[in-house]
Write a protein that binds this DNA or RNA. Structure first.
Lengths: 338, 338
DNA sequence: CTGAAAGCGCTTACAG
DNA sequence: CTGAAAGCGCTTACAG
């Protein structure tokens, strides 16, 4: 049998209350008893039962992190561990634990949500990657349960969220292409289900507009299926008979695929077509040419999300907060002719 | 205030015991009362408090997953989400939840372990990637707490573990190189802290031996630092003045880096030097040439780990189990001349 | 500074 | 088939 607080109390010849206070470092306890109790705890290798404590406290110090199925977020994969590390690091600092669930469909997601939120396990929830019409966002809002979304949700005013400045970075990236003299710049891999990519697209459009250039819808290639790869999307673009001189891909992997197709056509990057990606995967620095991309700072997205969540958990009155983690342009050889 | 089981009992004019039984689908409850209770629960949107249930049950249905800091396992990153998905999927099936902790140093790891295991939160623990002299393995063994290691641990007889057949796959991969006529095959990126890479090395050596070839230690390049990349390791190899015709890299990313260095020397893959990787990252299929690699089936590693853990949790007597998830050779253009 | 008592929200032998 | 009671292992007003 596990040793309990009561066992300690008996051995120390004090009341359970006293042991409890000693553990909690309650200053009212005399140092004599504190030490006596401490010694016995150490001797018996006693560790308080966190579950019992949670029940008494009505505080579990657990937050839930819900990760949508891989199927839906193939593109999220590479930076997900970093986001988690960000959450984890701050959670650890504030003595919170993380309950995780990678759900594979909407039904599972709903079920998990219920368990975490209504089951009294988690004190708050972090949702990775909100989609258009995300049912979880709706559900949690209805429950008025503390939660934070990573990736700006649709209904952005009544939700806590953290995201990159996607509009701005889309704008800047486009501007970079324009400054290199490009006029026919393709936007490869729009997923209209994800608000982040819509934001980037708007930045793209605004940059063209500011330059007095029209938006050619044929240059915007949607990525409908998760297994779309850059190669195929690039081929689609070519089949439309319009020859871009620049390609902004929504993801580094898409960019690599696009580069492969371009090379197969006997064209060169960046001389014939400049290419950029997104997410700054490790390999982006090592491709040939090295890939211009965007560092989205996933670790910060995670840690900021935890910060907001903590605020939401601890605040009595309701308020909706957001945090913007700046994304940074990483310019490399794939968009710059030496 | 949250609605509790007692609230339901009062409204339904039955005892709390009855409500509890109704929830648990205890067959002794008449369908009449069961329905009455169910209706009220639904009306009040009641959800049992999992924490209270855990305390009464002495069963949390939570397992812990401990992920060593990114610093120590850069190479693990790409497949970690897949492992987690494997664990998660089976956990979900058996109604277990997953508490996660990505620890960044040994101290944090120890602390987390204590909390999970001795704090009575988790019923079992999955440890990712055991290192040589892993302190967590030792600690959990001492506590005789149920746990499973992903990646064969040192002390393999007194521990539950799941791993690939690393020796065999190292052997087969080497054999593949030999069959292509290679005789000077480098082993790039040995991390002697990780038993998996040692196993692969042994497979490599055995294959050479079976062929009657000597092992040239100069062909074995150790990767001491986490930020070692394939490019630099390959350069090291060249600097040793020995020219391999084949390179087995311990990871796809290392392989890409190696290929880059090779290309810069004006040499071609696979004609001058054949290259292989490990882990079968998405990009391996799309590099030029496509990369020969090893599919380690991370999803299966995760789900098998959960299976073993469940067995360990539920068995009264002690036994040590292991599961081998077959890795598969994926032969592509980087090792085959058309 | 310390203790007795009640309570957190469930479950489960025991009795009927 | 149902209920009263005890218990899971803690915490925390309240009283002294």
């Amino acid at each position: 049998m596990r040793v309990t607080l009561n066992d300690i109390a008996k051995l120390a010849k004090v009341s359970p209350s006293t042991v409890s206070r000693a553990i909690a470092n309650n200053p009212k306890i005399s140092s004599a008893t504190r030490e006596k109790v401490s010694k016995i705890m150490k001797d018996l290798n006693y560790h308080p039962n966190i579950i019992a404590r949670s029940l008494a406290n009505k505080s579990t110090r657990i937050i839930g992190v819900i990760i949508p199925g891989v199927a839906e977020t193939a593109f999220q994969n590479p930076f997900f561990p970093e986001v988690l590390r960000g959450v984890s690091s701050l959670a650890h600092k504030f003595k919170y634990n993380i309950l995780i669930s990678s759900v594979s469909n909407a039904d599972e997601e709903k079920q998990t949500l219920k368990q975490f939120a209504q089951g009294g396990i988690a004190e708050g929830i972090i949702l990775l990657a909100s989609r258009v019409g995300d049912p979880s966002v709706e559900e949690l809002t209805k429950l008025s349960f503390p939660f934070v979304v990573i990736g700006k949700p649709e209904n952005k005013h009544e939700v806590n969220w953290v995201d990159n400045n996607n509009f701005t970075i889309g704008y800047e990236l486009t501007k970079h292409f324009l400054e290199q003299g490009h006029r026919k710049i393709a936007f490869l891999g729009l997923s209209s289900n994800y608000i982040v990519t819509l934001d980037r697209l708007n930045g793209y459009k605004k940059a063209l507009e500011d330059k007095g250039l029209p938006v050619d819808e044929r240059l915007i290639i949607e990525s409908k299926f998760i297994d779309d790869n850059g190669y195929d999307l690039m081929k689609q673009l070519f089949n439309r008979g319009i020859n871009p001189t620049g390609v902004m891909a929504g993801d580094d992997l898409l960019a690599f695929g696009a580069m492969r197709f371009i090379n197969e056509q006997g064209l060169k990057v960046p001389e014939d077509i400049a290419v950029s990606g997104f997410n700054n995967v490790q390999l982006a620095n090592y491709s040939s040419p090295p890939l211009t991309t965007v560092e989205i700072n996933p670790y910060l997205l995670g840690s900021k999300a935890f910060e907001l969540l903590l605020a939401a958990i601890n605040s009595d009155y309701k308020s909706y907060n957001r945090a913007i983690v700046p994304a940074e342009l990483v310019i490399r050889g794939s968009t710059q002719i030496k």
